[in-house]
Design a protein around this nucleic acid. Structure first.
Length: 713
DNA sequence: AGCACGCCGACT
DNA sequence: GTCGGCGTGCTC
């Protein structure tokens, strides 16, 4: 009897494929193993998701599995069902998700390598050998290259035909080459029992709440919580819970948004957990990543710590998932692959029957609402008020990029030798340059944005892709003088500070002020040692792990964030300001200032004056009126491609289908995406909105089947 | 995503 | 007439 394996492949197809299991492999093969299978003309690494005696469709010729790549399954049934659900939720390819859960070297495939033949060399000597043919042959004469490399290198319209003609005439030949990964050893070393001494001191309020979670850990039942608390308190609760999980023989996944943002918490964890923790982050080399991965697989780590990709760590026996800084945007990415780690964490916790803890000191409006409703909110914030003074400076009443009030306050601190921290979230000198006569404005050639003017560097730079050109003072169109466009940047602020405080040391920290990580650290070191009186920076400054607190912290023009066409703009502004309050020394002598043209806006007022509950109530009321999450479900569909016309056509096709569905679904758009061109691709976005996730899901499922789409939310 | 197949315009 | 555009469909 024939045995079939259902296999998913690392290709952007939302379906599985069936292969015949050869007789000799029948005993060996198991669900969750990697297999090498023929697909089209190549061999690919696939993942066995099921074994079957019968398959639905009989009128296709099945191919045979070429090789089994594992001695033991790599993926547990739990992990398989988790990744399956994740791919279903995000309409993405299961195989691609499984692929990224493994180190790159685990993905074996054949590739075509092109060699030049003797005939080809002879032809190259003839005069008649011209154009593309000549270029390719000359290139290959040096050494063979892979087919995909040649394709990319000589990206011309008629490449395929030229290429196939060259092969027909015997000038070149292609050979299949297997790119093989090093052997994988499967020796499972039992993990060492955890011996942790932790000097956490939980006050009774924290302990009561931590115990509420603790009681659910190890019960082999899904539950989730939102821990609304300061960093210090969250840290203590996390360690308390991790220790308990370890004692119960359970593994913990600990997710952080970005390494930079949470360096402090990570350092602490590294010290406390030592060898029991495995850190996965983007700065690891491929080799390091693989070693860490193998350590995790050998179950040598009880806690896996890192960014969203940690969620896809195929570790067994997960009993606790912690997702810190729940509100951070980096948990949702649109590529490689597209999923929101917050949703992913929930799905994984459900499948693992584990406990999920979201943590934040300014949780997203959506999660706060949901947690409150489900009585899963642990609010450790209510009784914690900070002591420093807070004020809003109304820029409409005081002229100048830095108000007089602000200058006076800075002066006082500088005189007392107290360092000052200032934040302004806009790069460069001006957001654009513009011709004084014809309105010509330099734009990025890859992305559709204006180029930011950097005065010190004498450059115009794209804030997305880094494309830059040298500054020019005359308009290339009409020869008139170029002048500053709208929007002053951080360099203006820096200039102004230096002018106003000539005797003080003013330093600015932003993308272009520092070229290397070393320099960032140097600035922070100087600041700590009192060599800098006034430190100014963009968001980069807030991400410095070792930045000490200050007695005066100022934030300039947070309303820049309010202008985003995003229903979360209010929340983002609120969060941005709140983050900065962390850098104020918590005593009665310290001060926090926000200078703004919108002193009466609720997000700004509430963030500055620490009125959290009013902000959340206000925001929820707004969302309800406007019909935005958490009162509706929103799916973002991003269309992108080289040619805008064909992208728009696809969009239209999809929308026509959505309209026909008539499922109380509202279409917002289509419109050009906020970044309407990125890396040479035009991007069109559509939001579809519904009160019911299920009807959104039903329509998307139906419609996406008919169209070549890749990513969606 | 790639890649083959197949059908219409502009060139040797 | 052929070359070469890209629209359409398929991958076990």
């Amino acid at each position: 009897m024939t045995l079939f394996a259902e296999v998913v492949l690392p290709v952007p197809l939302r379906r599985s494929f069936f292969y015949i299991v050869p007789e000799k492999h029948k005993k060996k093969i198991k669900k969750g193993m990697r297999v090498l299978v023929p697909f089209r003309k190549n061999l690919l690494t696939g993942y066995v998701t099921a074994l079957r005696k019968q398959v639905p469709n009989h009128n296709i010729e099945f191919k045979k599995i070429k090789e089994i790549l594992d001695k033991e399954p790599l993926f547990s049934p739990t992990f398989l069902s988790f990744t399956k659900r994740l791919s279903d939720y995000y309409f993405s390819s299961w195989g691609e998700i499984l692929q990224v859960s493994l180190p790159p070297s685990f993905n074996i495939k054949t590739r075509s390598v092109i060699y030049i033949c003797e005939k080809g060399r002879q032809y190259l000597n003839q005069k008649s050998c011209l154009g593309l043919e000549r270029k390719i042959l000359e290139f290959l004469a040096k050494k063979p290259y892979t087919e995909s490399y040649i394709r990319r290198k000589f990206r011309t319209r008629n490449f395929s035909s030229v290429y196939s003609r060259m092969r027909q005439r015997g000038w070149i030949e292609t050979k299949k080459e297997i790119k093989r990964a090093p052997e994988r050893e499967v020796n499972v070393i039992p993990s060492q029992p955890a011996q942790l001494e932790m000097d956490y001191s939980l006050d009774s309020e924290v302990k009561d709440n931590a115990d509420k979670i603790k009681r659910t850990v190890g019960k082999n039942k899904f539950s989730s919580f939102l821990l609304f608390a300061s960093t210090r308190r969250r840290e203590a609760v996390y360690l308390y819970l991790i220790k308990h999980a370890m004692a119960s023989g359970l593994k913990t996944l600990f997710l952080v948004p970005e390494i930079g943002l949470t360096a402090r918490i990570l350092e602490k964890f590294r010290k406390k957990l030592g060898q029991n923790a495995a850190f996965l982050h983007s700065r690891l080399s491929e080799k390091q990543r693989e070693l860490t991965w193998k350590r995790i697989e050998r179950e040598e780590a009880d806690v896996v710590i890192g960014p969203r990709s940690v969620l896809l760590s195929p570790i067994k026996g997960v009993g606790l998932i912690i997702l810190d800084e729940e509100h951070e945007d980096s948990y949702y990415q649109r590529e490689n692959p597209s999923y929101d780690a917050r949703i992913g964490a929930r799905i994984r916790a459900e499948e693992e029957k584990a406990v999920l803890v979201y943590g934040s000191e300014n949780p997203s409006v959506e999660l706060l609402y949901k947690s409150k409703k489900e009585k899963k909110l642990l609010d450790l914030y209510a009784n914690q008020k900070t002591q420093f003074r807070r004020s809003i400076i109304d820029s409409r009443k005081q002229a100048g990029i830095i108000s007089q009030t602000m200058k006076n306050e800075i002066k006082k601190r500088v005189e007392k030798k107290e360092p000052v921290l200032l934040f302004f979230n806009r790069h460069g000198y001006a957001s654009s340059l513009v011709c004084s006569r014809c309105d010509y404005t330099p734009k990025c050639q890859n992305c559709d944005v204006l180029l930011t003017y950097y005065k010190k560097e004498k450059k115009l730079v794209c804030r997305y892709c880094g494309y830059s050109i040298d500054l020019f003072l005359r308009c290339p169109e009409c020869g008139s003088k170029m002048v500053l466009g709208h929007g002053y940047g951080i360099e203006v602020l820096e200039e102004e500070l230096k002018k106003s405080f000539p005797k003080s040391s003013v330093k600015s920290l932003h993308k272009f002020a520092v070229k290397r990580r070393m320099e960032e650290e140097k600035v922070i070191k100087d600041y700590r040692e009192g060599k800098i009186d006034i430190l100014l920076g963009t968001q980069m400054l807030a991400h410095q792990p070792q930045l000490p607190e200050s007695s005066l912290v100022g934030v300039f023009y947070p309303e820049n964030l309010m202008r985003l066409s995003d229903f979360r703009a209010g929340y983002k502004t609120f969060k941005y300001i709140r983050e900065k309050t962390k850098f104020v020394k918590n005593n009665k002598d310290s001060e926090f200032f926000v200078q703004t043209y919108l002193p009466n806006s609720t997000p700004i007022r509430c963030a500055v004056l620490e009125d959290l509950s009013f902000f959340y109530e206000h925001e929820l009321r707004n969302r309800k009126v406007m019909g935005y999450p958490p009162f509706a479900f929103l799916a973002e569909i991003l269309f992108f491609g080289r040619d805008l016309r064909s992208v728009a056509k696809k969009t239209r096709k999809l929308l026509d289908m959505v309209e026909k569905e008539q499922n109380h679904i509202e279409i917002l758009g289509p419109s050009l995406a906020p970044i309407k061109r990125l890396r040479g691709k035009n991007r069109v976005q559509v939001f579809i909105k519904s009160r019911e996730r299920s009807s959104l899901d039903r329509v998307l499922r139906k419609v996406l089947k008919a169209i070549r789409t890749r990513k969606s939310l």
